[in-house]
């Protein structure tokens, strides 16, 4: 099966849809937690990007990795 069939999250601001059925991350709270102030004018775009990233995170979280699979911090191709 082509994995393209599972492609999902679309880019923000494209009108491509796909955002309505996803939970919206609490951007203002998350920003406060890291000492970041999001300008009001930027908030819609930041939210759109956070939703996009949440979609990718959900996609990744749906894949079970063995406990022995370590993070690739010191990566050698």
């Amino acid at each position: 099966m082509s994995s393209a069939a599972r492609l999902s999250p679309s880019a923000p601001g494209t009108g491509a849809g796909g955002h309505d059925d996803r939970k919206v991350p609490p951007v203002s709270d998350m920003a406060r937690g890291i000492g970041l102030s999001v300008p009001a004018a930027s908030l819609p775009d930041v939210v759109a990007n956070a939703v996009l990233l949440q979609g990718y995170a959900d996609l990744l979280a749906g894949f079970a990795l063995p406990d022995t699979c370590e993070p690739a911090y010191e990566y050698t191709p």
Binding site: L52, L53, L60, L65, E70
Partner: peptide, 25 residues
């Protein structure tokens, strides 16, 4: 907007992506 959203990503998501990288390799 992209950098701000990225800065807020949870550690769990970043670590999962790095673990997946190992698997995909």
């Amino acid at each position: 907007s992209r950098l701000m959203a990225g800065a807020m990503l949870p550690a769990a998501t970043f670590v999962q992506a790095q673990r997946f990288r190992r698997w995909f390799r």
